[in-house]
Design a protein around this nucleic acid. Sequence first.
DNA 1: CTGTCGTACTATGTCTGACGTAGTAAGTGT
DNA 2: ACACTTACTACGTCAGACATAGTACGACAG
Lengths: 110, 110
Amino acid sequence: MIQISSDVIRGYNDTMILYLLWDAPSYGYEISKRISEMTDEMYNIKETTLYSAFKRMEKEGLVTSFYQSAENGKRRTYYQITDSGRSYYRSKCDEWQVTKDVVEHFIREE
Amino acid sequence: MIQISSDVIRGYNDTMILYLLWDAPSYGYEISKRISEMTDEMYNIKETTLYSAFKRMEKEGLVTSFYQSAENGKRRTYYQITDSGRSYYRSKCDEWQVTKDVVEHFIREE
DNA sequence: CTGTCGTACTATGTCTGACGTAGTAAGTGT
DNA sequence: ACACTTACTACGTCAGACATAGTACGACAG
């Protein structure tokens, strides 16, 4: 089973997280599980990577956070995407198309 | 004109360079020009990025170097891909396919 | 009722590839 | 004579990813 490290998608963790926040707020643990599921465990984001991404994005105004006690009585920090976050996400999607094109000039597929 | 920075393809500069060394040895300036041409100037590798990639890859045994005076009398450091470089390149191509799949789960195309 | 597991984080420090800035030097073109 | 292109080297900085460690609370098993 191939497992990829976060380093190879450096700069796209934020984008992946924003995608998962698009429709509703979420929190660290859930985001992490959803990424693993969606990628069939090919990519498992590291906790430190994830939480530092949240901090960075909050500072940059891409997300806002709020505390909320969950059903199970546990306290969680939820993150919510902002308008600025949505437009950042869209620009990263555009960038991705270009990046992909560029890289694929140098990739041999067999 | 969209220009992408090397940061978004972090870790794939080496792969791009190895691709260009596949059939024949080459040197910094030529590699740099060819990358710009091949990508329609969407990606222009920085000199420092390029030369430090050469150094790193030589240390890792992915390439070997030799001096040679060119037609124009200028001295150049040519780099040549090694067997190890070829197998590294192939593994990066495989990795790329996975990376692309993973990222695209989180990208909305319109 | 104790210890392990899963959940939900925070803190701290390290590493690496990319990049900014600068400088050298030799040949070419005007 | 001077600018420009070619062909590099040196040095220092930065940011994102990651390793390691620790905290804390609830559930659940033996």
